[in-house]
Amino acid sequence: MTVDGAVRRYRVEHRTTYAYSGEVTSSYGRSYLTPRDVPGQRLLAHDIHIDPVPSDRSVGADVYGNITSFFHITTAHRVLAVTGASLVEVDAPVRGQAGAARPWETARPTGANGPLVAEFALDLHPPEITPQIAAYAAESLTPGRPLLDAVAELNTRVYTDFTYMSGATTVSTKMADVFAARAGVCQDFARLAVTCLRSHGLAARYVSGYLATDPPPGKERMVGADATHAWAAVWLPGSGEHDRAGHWIDFDPTNDQFGDERYITVAWGRDYADVPPLRGIIYTDAKDSAITVSVDVSEVDGDHRAH
Rank of each mutant, 00 (worst) to 15 (best):
V3P: 00
V7M: 10
R8V: 04
V12F: 11
R15W: 01
T17M: 09
Y18R: 10
Y18D: 10
Y20N: 10
R30L: 15
R42E: 08
A45F: 02
A45W: 07
H46F: 13
H46Y: 14
H46T: 15
I50Y: 04
D51M: 05
P54D: 02
S55F: 06
G60R: 15
F70N: 13
F71L: 10
L80I: 09
A81Y: 00
S86E: 02
S86M: 07
D91T: 06
P93H: 06
G96M: 10
G99K: 03
P109L: 09
T110V: 08
A112T: 15
G114L: 04
P115I: 06
A118D: 09
D123M: 08
I129N: 03
I133T: 05
A135G: 08
A135T: 14
Y136T: 01
E139I: 06
S140F: 08
L148W: 04
L148E: 01
L148S: 06
T163K: 13
Y164Q: 03
T169C: 02
S172K: 12
V178C: 08
A180K: 15
A181F: 03
R182L: 07
L192V: 11
V194G: 00
S208Q: 09
Y210T: 13
L211K: 00
A212V: 11
T213I: 05
P215R: 08
A225T: 06
A225Y: 05
A232W: 03
D243Y: 01
W248F: 10
F251V: 02
D252V: 11
G259L: 10
R262G: 11
V266E: 08
R270L: 05
D271Y: 01
L278A: 03
L278S: 02
G280S: 10
A286L: 09
V300N: 12
R305N: 08
H307C: 05
